[in-house]
Design a protein around this nucleic acid. Structure first.
Lengths: 94, 94
DNA sequence: CAAGATTTATCACGTACGGTAACTTTTCCT
DNA sequence: AGGAAAAGTTACCGTACGTGATAAATCTTG
């Protein structure tokens, strides 16, 4: 609850990804069963994925994220986006 | 075809993810073998992943992306960024 | 404590994975 | 242009594990 703000952002590992998914789901007060129904995913898969299973299938992971209302953005690291508008805020890695 | 301008951004499926990875790798003039060496990933895995294999393991996918210098960002959909700027919303209906 | 939610065990099936080699495509050189 | 080399794809094998469904076990609420 402390870092809900930093909940969303870069993820590097399956564990981080799962944590984001779980926290997001909890915030939305959804149960695994509900998400299961919405996304045609087994509660078992969801449970394991949210706990960071490294071997979960990417297709299902993406589906789970979509079902949860999460967006996956891919961008070059350490490089600004080529597109519209210059943004700011690049600060991580102490 | 696919514009490389919009290369980076939201991905919804394994296919899209793979395409981003491949295009990015090509732009960097890296071979599968090189990436394989850098990331401890088999060329076979990389080849399949870039071609959109739905069942590729999330852990390896994330590792491949990191090795390629790509960043994965997770954020709520239909929600503006925490900071300023109102921007585009959603689309796509299941 | 009870109701609800999540984890885990079991079973059976399917397939990812690495390594290697053969094969196909792409790249690039004379 | 033609062809060779490089890059990428794919089939084989065996090991190992993911997955769904269900139910039982465990944890989390209220």
């Amino acid at each position: 609850m402390t870092d809900e703000d930093s909940l969303y952002g870069t993820v590097q590992t399956a564990e981080e990804l799962g944590r984001v998914a779980r926290t997001h789901r909890k915030q939305r007060r959804l149960t695994l069963e509900t998400v299961s129904g919405l996304g045609n995913l087994s509660t078992r898969f969801l449970s394991e994925f949210e706990r960071g299973k490294e071997t979960a299938e990417i297709g299902k992971v993406l589906k789970a994220l979509r079902t949860l209302g999460l967006e996956v953005i891919i961008q070059p690291r350490g490089r600004a986006m080529p597109v519209h508008r210059a943004d700011q805020a690049r600060e991580e890695t102490p």
